[in-house]
Design a protein around this nucleic acid. Sequence first.
DNA 1: TTAGGGTTACAG
DNA 2: CTGTAACCCTAA
Length: 301
Amino acid sequence: MGAPKQRWTSEEEAALRAGIAKHGVGNWRRILNDPELSSTLHYRSNVDLKDKWRNMNGIVSASGSREKGRTTVKKTRATPKNNDHSTTVNTVTSDADDENVDAKPIASVSSGALNTSNLKKPHSRLGNIIMEAIKNLNEPTGSHRTTIADYIEEQYWPPSDFDHLLSAKLKDLTTSGKLIKVNRKYRIAPSSPYSEGRSPKMLLLEDVQREPFKVGSDDSKTLTRSQVDAELAHMATMSAEAAAVAAARAVAEAEAIMAEAEAAAREAEAAEADAQAAQAFAEAAFLTLKNRNAAKLMGQA
DNA sequence: TTAGGGTTACAG
DNA sequence: CTGTAACCCTAA
């Protein structure tokens, strides 16, 4: 991990996830074309989206071109893009440097205000500490919040109200896809190098086939439907482990989607014009969630 | 335009 | 030096 070139921000990642959930994997151009998402992903190209998704996903064949004795050829390549923005100086009172517990991961710039500087700084220190803690704890089934808190308290200073900050940050990390929350436990989301010798408790496909809502929008329904079918078909060919991982990921995605939909709906309350779009998006997200919620992992709030 | 291979750049 | 993430190139 690191911050190499033009690192993707949480907003961009969230937007990408939302776009994939909405339009399906592979339709990068369509995602980029989405008016809401395009504001956030303005600096990224369709290829960038594809590459980012490849990285986020736990790349299948990491063809590290390491096995090439490639040396001495230097391509003086200056930094191509110099966008980006003022680093929000976050001088928090000395020790506990934690911030933004923002509730809206997506910057839905609706018609009207042309917001240009929408950059949130990367992840804060606490986020890194949390990731480190979980990684070092290395619990195969994930770590409880209390365990994480204990670890951090031993390693670092215990600020006041730390518990609250930790909860907020955990939620933030979960919604942004860095962590997966499964039954009160948090795990590192993407690449899991440890193959976990034991087969995970199989997540039974509990097909929730009730119909809570009757969404009248046919368009989004068909779109979502085909997408879900494709994913289910793909899931059927997966191994047990892969399926478990995919299920956990799907839930994490769904949570992120729901959060975004919530934020979008909240925004829409103010702007009537966007209300319908947000509604449709929320419904689509809910449909996706319903279909994807095969595993009953979402018990707790 | 997209998927995949390959390269460059940075962090540990 | 190794791993990872962004970037680049090219076939399909």
